[in-house]
């Protein structure tokens, strides 16, 4: 009974931390738009908690560069598992139009394992919500499998 409640809760209460790796703010605005009364993701228990130590879902927007990849990794490491990462927008997916720049590492998955990719430039709020829901399915899988926590790829 208790185990069921816990398992059920796993997908009923995703708390987000949103990290902007140097996005043009397009995706950030769309992400925050999900919290507005129009979309109201709190219906699904989603909270923008803003603290990696409390969060389950890391939402990353923007291109990862050599400077902020350490920050990205540290924020990821400070999240207790089970945790998922959602990369948002063209830049987050691959580096976008900046991918050839001298200081750019590339997409988020170059630094930390990404579970869901949400494309778009910027990604639409509907797509982001869809991405979070996708991510929740993964979260409950991780929980059920009891997988050990994933380590970051790049050090």
């Amino acid at each position: 009974m208790l185990k069921k409640i816990v398992e059920h809760s796993q997908i009923k209460s995703p708390w987000l931390v949103h990290y902007d790796c140097g996005s043009c703010n397009g995706c950030d605005i769309e992400t925050l738009a999900c919290l507005t009364p129009l979309y109201d993701v709190e219906r699904f228990g989603v909270l923008n908690i803003g603290n990696p130590k409390h969060a389950d879902v890391l939402i990353v927007t923007g291109t990862v560069n050599k400077r902020n990849k350490k920050v990205l990794k540290q924020i990821y490491d400070q999240m207790p598992s089970p945790k998922i990462v959602i990369a948002i927008g063209a830049c987050g997916l691959s580096g976008g139009i900046f991918r050839e720049a001298y200081n750019v590492v590339g997409g988020v998955d170059k630094v930390i394992p990404v579970d869901v990719y949400v494309p778009g430039c910027p990604a639409k709020p509907e797509a982001i919500i869809d991405g979070v829901v996708e991510g929740l399915a993964k979260l409950s899988e991780i929980q059920k499998a009891g997988k050990p926590k994933k380590e970051a790829i790049a050090s």
């Binding site: 990290y19 990696p52 350490k70 920050v71 540290q74 207790p80």
Partner: peptide, 12 residues
């Protein structure tokens, strides 16, 4: 229990 450093906005 995993020990995590203090939260320093990711630049600890």
């Amino acid at each position: 229990a995993k020990i995590a450093g203090p939260y320093m906005s990711g630049i600890s």
